[in-house]
Write a protein that binds this DNA or RNA. Structure first.
Lengths: 219, 219
DNA sequence: ATCTGTCTGTTGAAAAATCAACGCATTGGA
DNA sequence: TCCAATGCGTTGATTTTTCAACAGACAGAT
């Protein structure tokens, strides 16, 4: 419980609020706490939801799947981050993604409708919450744009280099780790896994790249 | 000028505000009105901007271009709609897209920073503006997710069918128009134009689809 | 220590996309 | 009316991806 509050203090949605205020807001928002086992589906595509999730611990993967079982990964959510907030805020009829706990996880679900409307109690944090939410969603938007940048390249090699370059830039170093295994990276970049492995080998052979597992070094 | 106000009344960002209030807010936000000729670049990728655009008339296309000149279209903006708002709100260091006027256009530029901070004057619309902006960006987010859904398919045929099905759903009918010519559609779906044309012909031959120019009918 | 399931890289055949080039139709000027 | 520019479809050669199958490495469980 104390650990939970530690995390909450670092959740961007509650940025600018004191511990006490966060407690009050959580109550006011009617936040619901949920546990999910490893491999449990937390949100299913096709469902309608007004709630978004705040990940407290564990990891949740956001993805789509088409008829043929091709998976398309949108995001790996880490503790402190939100998920499904855009669909909840936009009032989407049926969400287009699945949310899967890839580890045992704890999640706080918050009704998006309550964010906006004043609560009647002496709780004047709604303005702040909406403003924070705006920042968060705008950043997600930028991240989605970036993903489109990667995946719109025509070849596996270009997609891969665009992705790795960006990771290096974010890390501020040519050496960095990525949050994906090979299959996941392939599903994020929308390419074939074996082709991705082959391309990695080629890049290594050319001396452009070194890697071991999910740690990479660009030259 | 009267026509301008007609449009502004229908801009979602100013939803819930009366004509008089909109005038006040525009002043308070320091909105700047700009004209752009056909083929004029309104925003250049790499620039930094805190302002977003509100299209009053004309059309603006949002796109990226890679080293090799491959264009990737994000959106065709229509009058009343916003553009670049996510980058402005997220405070991105350098925007990753270009905005091109594809027709002679009029644009209102608004500083995103002024949206959030109370203005000192007796202007209490900031809360409303932020809330409206949240809705708008959340919807854009859903649209981006959808585009990823289309482009993550593995074949041109699948991308095309996913896109056309969605357009039909939006139109509430098997018969609908799209806002793209062939090259633009190819750049939106990240496929080769000639391959796209060939696929369209095949679908027509199979009796799945009828089309003429940018008007389509799914069966 | 062994067994088992998962992850990764490799390979070759098949399928699909890209690329370059061309012809035809349409459109907007000169 | 003629010309130039643009958009669209077609085709065949080439490149790239996908697909299926397999083997080695590794980690966790018994």
């Amino acid at each position: 419980m104390e650990k939970e509050l530690e995390i909450l203090k670092n959740v961007e949605l509650f940025g600018g609020m004191a511990e006490k205020e966060i407690r009050a807001v959580l109550f006011c928002l009617g936040a619901k706490r949920v546990k999910a086992q490893k491999r449990e589906l937390v949100l299913r595509s096709g469902e309608r939801t007004n709630s978004f999730g705040v990940l407290l611990s564990g990891e949740v993967q956001i993805y789509q799947e088409d008829y043929y079982g091709n998976r398309s990964i949108f995001d790996n959510v880490r503790p402190g981050e939100l998920f499904a907030e855009s669909f909840a805020c936009a009032g989407t009829q049926s969400i287009p993604v699945n949310a899967l706990a890839t580890e045992e996880s704890e999640i706080l679900f918050i009704d998006c409708g309550r964010l906006a409307s004043p609560c009647g109690h002496a709780c004047d944090f709604h303005t702040r919450l909406v403003r924070n939410m705006l920042d968060i969603i705008a950043k997600k938007n930028v991240a989605l744009t970036q993903r489109i940048d990667f995946t719109s390249r025509r070849t596996t090699r270009e997609k891969l280099l665009a992705y790795l370059s960006e990771q290096a830039r974010l890390a501020g170093s040519g050496s960095f780790s990525i949050p994906f295994d090979r299959q996941e990276l392939a599903d994020y970049l929308s390419v074939d896994r074996s082709g991705l492995s082959a391309e990695l080998s080629r890049l290594r052979a050319e001396g452009v790249l070194e890697y071991h597992k999910n740690r990479f070094a660009l030259k």
